[in-house]
């Protein structure tokens, strides 16, 4: 479904953010991408979304190369990024403004119900807590029924309990239309809870270090011995990628680590 090959991204300031990325993602698959800061996770997501163009390589969705943002790709950012001058309802409509009014209405009502915000439909974004605002952002991204949903550290700014709740809820939402999801996260547990497959990236330049397919049945439980074993393995991979970054940093010679 989504095929990425030979992808690299060099910014105008000369920084090579990504190099030689190759990745295939199947229909309905949930792929988690983890890695330290600056390893190009968010850049990869922005390239897939069409917000930025790669320097080399191709991204093909259902046989068509991605050059600009497309209707079948939804994006949830780290912050809710709701339009502050629109009510929650109007923010969700924003995602399907081209549809006939009757369909807009029914889809928005459904989306708000699914994220549990029906009662807050006519509130301003400033009146919502961080978790509620992020759920509104999820509703806005999903109301257009995208076949691919990109999530860029969507719960990283939230407290632990709200984060767990939204992770749970994200899978609820996914179960309706089962879009392909690519989730960028710093949180290994989050990646393991949500993903069918986890990609570990290393920095300078951003590359895929390894990928793991946790053979964990659902529902997945934090604290389960098998879950903890996968967590330790991913942590080991991440530690390796951290050492790669430190050894490439002139201020932190590898010998000192």
């Amino acid at each position: 479904m989504l095929e990425i090959s030979g992808l690299s991204k060099r910014y105008p300031n000369g920084l090579l953010a990504l190099s030689g990325i190759g990745l295939n993602v199947g229909v309905g698959e949930i792929v988690g991408i983890v890695g330290g800061s600056g390893c190009g996770k968010s850049t990869l997501l922005r390239l897939i979304s069409g917000l930025e163009m790669p320097t080399t390589g191709t991204i093909v969705l259902n046989g068509e190369p991605i050059a600009t943002p497309r209707e079948e790709i939804g994006f949830v950012f780290q912050e809710p990024r709701l339009m502050p001058w629109l009510t929650i309802r109007r923010n969700v409509v924003f995602g399907i403004r081209h549809l006939p009014e009757a369909e807009q209405k029914s889809r928005v009502e459904e989306a708000l119900k699914r994220v549990g915000l029906t009662k807050f439909a006519d509130n301003w974004p400033r009146e919502l807590s961080g978790g509620m605002a992020q759920r509104a952002a999820l509703a806005r991204a999903l109301v257009g029924r995208p076949s691919v949903l990109l999530l860029d550290e969507p719960f990283s700014a939230l407290d632990a309990l709200t984060r767990y709740d939204l992770q749970d809820h994200l899978l609820d939402l996914w179960s309706y239309d089962r879009p392909t999801m690519i989730l960028v996260t710093h949180d290994i547990e989050e990646a393991l809870i949500l993903s069918d497959r986890v990609i570990v990236m290393e920095p300078q330049p951003g590359r895929i270090l390894t990928e793991v397919t946790p053979g964990l049945s659902r529902p997945r439980l934090r604290g389960d011995p098998e879950f903890d074993a996968w967590k330790r393995r991913l942590l080991g991979d991440l530690t390796h990628s951290f050492h790669v970054r430190r050894s490439g940093d002139e201020d932190f010679p590898a010998a000192a680590i």
Partner: peptide
């Protein structure tokens, strides 16, 4: 707050509020 994640619960009404 449940720490378990339940995928594929399409039949359950969502009443997150």
């Amino acid at each position: 707050m449940s720490l378990a994640v339940h995928a594929g619960r399409k039949d359950e009404p969502v009443a997150l509020s």
